[in-house]
Design a protein around this nucleic acid. Structure first.
Lengths: 171, 171
DNA sequence: TTGTCTGCAAAGCGTTTGCATTTCG
DNA sequence: CGAAATGCAAACGCTTTGCAGACAA
């Protein structure tokens, strides 16, 4: 009952800081694909599951179970805590969400992108941007040659200052 | 009261699987550097702290707080749970240990290597090897140019099959 | 109708904290 | 001696689970 999509094992673990309000993240999501994934995998399309899909779609980028719980509470939806966790587990298993392990012990979730890419995380404002693979592939091939390992997947996270924060003083 | 050594932010988060008994890990550690780090940073060299340093030195590669607690119990040392956590926090802050966020919500710790490097994790047997930076630096520079970001640090984890497991059938 | 799913509340688990006591320097 | 560190146990925060009732197919 599971269809593959993401390739990143475990997912990145970010030195987490909540982004300031108004931060623009990449890769938000329509509810459709989430619902479709559950449907086509043979899971029941229940009201709570549709609601969770909506809540996720309404978010931009990363979110935690607690975020969705708050959203649900704010919208006065009667979704239970357990249901939210179970839906997130399901969507992760279906590979439409990627689960990140935060230092706090929490988990965050990101909609899976269609192609392999990496994250560029601003250490000042928390903004996250996707970066593609260019140039990295050959470095990886070199590593395969040197070590004799067969590299199947990899994860790269970059930390630094985004263009906007570069021009400012350190926070 | 803190001296820098590791540069990896947050530390890698591995799709964790306990290695089979007998797995050889790299980078174990003498107790000396751990004790020295605390000493030179001005912290008291107490009996429990020395004991924790010994326990860490007796381990190879990754370990969790629970591992150390078990070790301490096995050796009938009267070290409290809180003390172990506090010592690990301290050593992490002193940058002689690196803290990893496991999917379970636990934290694992690895002795910090002297130079920047990456991990090559075998998806079959769990073996971990260090890889150096060769070839990657230029790829990162290219990314800086393309994106306008100023990359400060990065983290790369590679997953694949080690030479030994390559020759075997998939597990 | 039937097996899946939900909500609730309680339990689990790793980690942290408050506080009285001990220990290093 | 006095500040820092310890040990204990209770508290914490996030996540999971057991179970009776609800619901999609």
């Amino acid at each position: 009952m599971i269809a593959p999509r993401c390739t990143t094992p475990g997912g990145p673990s970010v030195d987490w800081r909540r982004p300031p309000v108004g931060t623009v993240y990449h890769r938000s999501m329509e509810p459709g694909p989430l619902v479709a994934a559950m449907d086509s995998a043979g899971y029941r399309l229940t009201e709570p599951r549709r609601a969770v899909a909506e809540l996720i779609a309404a978010r931009e980028g990363h979110f935690t179970a607690a975020d969705l719980l708050d959203d649900a509470k704010a919208r006065r939806l009667g979704i239970g805590r357990a249901t939210i966790f179970r839906s997130l587990d399901l969507l992760t298993e279906l590979n439409v969400l990627e689960r990140l392990d935060l230092p706090s012990g929490e988990h965050a979730y990101v909609p899976c992108g269609p192609v392999h890419h990496h994250h560029l995380v601003c250490s000042n404002c928390g903004r996250v941007t996707d970066v593609d693979d260019q140039g990295l592939a050959s470095a990886l091939e070199a590593i395969e040659h040197r070590t004799g390992w067969q590299v199947e997947t990899h994860r790269l996270e970059l930390y630094g200052r985004c263009p906007r924060c570069r021009t400012r003083r350190p926070s």
